[in-house]
């Protein structure tokens, strides 16, 4: 079966007063119907830009996007702006990090949910409002009917994110893109929202691309994971594989740096592992592997030749000359 979304050799460059920022440099991945793919990376890795590129939300004047983004047999990069509008919020919808800025403060919750339903599904106002109330109910908002006439400022952060999810799912999209959906929320609310996303996915069967920096969130929701670093995909695997046997030293490093509650109790001299150095600037991409300056295993070849993404076992792939945990690695 053809994948729902297929991204091939995506490149995104921004023209800025400081020069050209190479935000995404040749990223490819597929998303199958009904699966959850997590794109993980730190700030500047290009993970958010990749997800914005899918919906063509990047400023057209200063951005150069190349490569291919195919969604259900259509090349999104070739569509007209009108055709794109028919897809956004309908076949593909998006949830953003900050629900307060993503909601319109001067419109009621109800009119914001109803708008998409009237536009894309051709519902009348009354039907759209009724469907909107159902959606609010579905995402666990108490007294949904009353909430429809509230303005966004009357809701807490967690409730606003629920509203965003209700809006995003109202038109039954085939793909939901969630960019750091729980980063601005408290942990107890984050846990609720992740639980909600899991149960809604099971009910609606929508594929989900979740963009996050938090491996804890990845472990909770993802089927498959793509790890990005400095504008490139450096590893991809099933979530189980990635956590159990990371191949790229950056992924291994991230996993070690992620604090786990209670670890220090077993070892009085416990210190948190860190990755030395800084994420490289998108303005000056160097030769060789982008992670080499921070990598303990880096050798000369890493600094000269950028490793290509190569397949390992079970759909696992990585871009490293000297991978961790790999069986029969073909060293250069």
């Amino acid at each position: 079966m053809a994948p729902l979304l297929s991204i091939t050799d995506l490149q995104v460059h921004f023209r800025t007063p400081r020069g050209v920022s190479r935000a995404v440099e040749g990223v490819s991945f597929d998303v199958n119907a009904g699966e959850t793919l997590a794109i993980v990376g730190e700030s500047g890795s290009g993970k958010s830009v990749t997800s914005m590129a899918v919906l063509r939300l990047l400023p057209t004047k200063t951005t150069r996007v190349s490569g291919s983004i195919r969604f259900e047999d259509r090349e999104l990069l070739d569509l007209s702006e009108d055709e794109m509008r028919g897809i956004r919020g309908n076949a593909i919808s998006m949830i953003f990090q900050e629900p307060m800025t993503a909601l319109n403060p001067v419109l009621t919750i109800g009119s914001q949910i109803a708008e998409a339903l009237m536009l894309h599904q051709g519902l009348g106002k009354r039907q759209a409002l009724a469907r909107g109330t159902e959606m609010l109910d579905l995402v666990g908002i108490p007294a949904a009917a009353r909430r429809m006439s509230d303005y966004p400022h009357k809701l807490s952060g967690g409730m606003r994110q629920r509203v965003m999810i209700a809006m995003a799912l109202a038109c039954e999209p085939r793909l939901l893109i969630a960019d750091e959906p729980t980063t601005a929320l408290d942990v107890s609310i984050q846990a609720q929202i992740l639980e909600l996303m899991r149960s809604l996915k099971a009910r609606t069967g929508a594929a989900v691309v979740i963009v996050t920096h938090d491996l804890g969130v990845v472990a909770e929701v993802a089927d498959r994971v793509a790890v990005m670093y400095a504008g490139q995909k450096i590893e991809e695997a099933s979530a189980t594989q990635l956590f159990a046997r990371p191949h790229h030293p950056y992924t291994s490093g991230l996993l070690r740096a992620m604090p786990r509650l209670g670890t220090s109790l077993h070892d009085p001299d416990w210190t948190l592992a860190s990755i030395p150095g800084q994420v490289p600037s998108p303005f000056s991409r160097q030769e060789g592997c982008a992670f080499a300056p921070r990598c303990a295993k880096a050798k000369d070849v890493c600094r000269r030749h950028r490793p290509a993404l190569r397949p390992a076992e079970d759909g696992h792939s990585h871009a490293c000359h000297f991978p961790d945990n790999a069986t029969g690695a073909d060293h250069v």
Partner: peptide, 16 residues
Amino acid sequence: AVPIPDPAMRRTEPLL
């Protein structure tokens, strides 16, 4: 509520 970075582990405690 702290997420566990391990897909093999599922939280058992009811959520707040």
